[in-house]
Write a protein that binds this DNA or RNA. Structure first.
Lengths: 220, 220
DNA sequence: TATGTTGTGCGACCAAAGTCGCATACAGCT
DNA sequence: AGCTGTATGCGACTTTGGTCGCACAACATA
């Protein structure tokens, strides 16, 4: 099959593995497709193995009461979802949900092979650790943002991140921020009146990046 | 020296290492004392190695503008601070601060030996991974708490956790929660009026655990 | 066209949290 | 006792975020 080639080409991690290890990683592993909106790691059937995202974007969110949610972090191609992995190793079982924001292509290595790779290959170990580090850093920054920043600052940061244009409903933005649509709408209206953005249906264009940046980085 | 004995007795992780690996861990490693209030991992001199806490408690906090702070998680004896470790492996550099809440005794393994142990010993790998998992879980729960719970709920949970008595100033509690003393004082006064706690100087006694639990777990 | 569904706009109102200023209480020290 | 630094109490005020209710616009489908 062509998958090993695709892996090799796209992801530096696998490039540094010796051929024998690559062959091993292929054995028993499989590629899965997940449709947009589906959940790549269902909470009730955990521990399917070590998964690497080949294409698409995964949102990892925490669900709260009354249908609210916060986005913990996002997974991009080449990254791994450690929520499922760490219940292979640590016995922690998380209650976070993963949601496919687009159609996904995932590559999954079964636990036994994962453990063997971990034992034998330093590059692979480094990759896994760096993924852990990245998630820790993401979450720390998120805590900081939620604890110390106002919603308008966080919203401005998101808009800048997706500049020059953000697509999606205001309700989706609210979910990322852990708030409700009303608030996002209110804040966006404020931004629009100040000439910072232009609003359309499922579409926000950034008109004044500097102005938004001033908001996002404002002290206090 | 007596340290290896102490390690063996107190910490299951080291019990499962073969003697050869224990000897190796001892080489080049050292024990450090850190006074209460000191910082076991200074932000400007990172990467001293892999550290395990032998005794004491470490608060890992995120500092925000205007002197505010939030507590990200706590380290207890037998746990490891991955903030310093993960910059050995991943290249992430965090901006979180570690503060010794009591006098500390720490055991530090230099990077080279840490990497070798990681390569050779599965039990050690599992330990390191479980630490990562634990921190991830801690942070996820924290995000959930900050995003969805009211301050009175989080405060009640902290008091219950330290039941039957919490020692320390209200300002310290405020730092744990990421708020200011005024708010904590107000909430505690409310609890006192409802007969849930008894307040004293640097001292809060829980009178009605069930009542507090009802607050901590209240929906919405 | 008719009919839902989904996204958005807005206004009024409420509650939680943060801010400010100052008064008071306690502990340690000289 | 008197001084000093820290911990606490308390009241008034502002801001932010959340809630509710409803109207309207865009899009899809029948």
């Amino acid at each position: 099959m062509d998958i090993s080639k695709q892996l090799l080409e796209q992801f530096p991690i696998f490039q540094s593995l010796p051929p024998a290890d690559i062959d091993e990683a292929m054995q028993g592993s499989h590629v899965r497709r997940v449709a947009k909106g589906g959940s790549p790691f269902s909470t009730n059937s955990p521990c399917t193995g070590f998964s690497v995202l080949l294409s698409g974007t995964v949102r990892v969110v925490k669900l709260g009461a009354s249908g609210r949610e916060v986005e913990l972090y996002r997974l991009q191609p080449g990254e791994s979802c450690l929520i499922s992995t760490s219940c292979l190793l640590g016995k922690a079982n998380y209650t976070a949900a993963a949601i496919a924001q687009t159609d996904l292509l995932m590559f999954t290595i079964p636990p036994s092979i994962f453990k063997r790779l971990l034992a034998r290959n330093e590059a692979f170990r480094d990759f896994v650790f760096s993924q852990f580090s990245q998630r820790l850093a993401d979450l720390m920054m998120l805590v900081e943002a939620i604890a110390f920043q106002k919603l308008d600052q966080r919203l401005a940061a998101i808009l800048l991140d997706a500049a020059p244009e953000t697509r999606g409903s205001q309700a989706q933005l609210a979910d990322r921020l852990g708030t409700v649509r009303d608030i996002v709408g209110r804040l966006l209206k404020n931004f629009e009146q100040r000439g910072l953005v232009a609003l359309g249906r499922e579409r926000i264009r950034v008109l004044d990046p500097e102005g938004l940046k001033a908001i996002a980085e404002r002290p206090s």
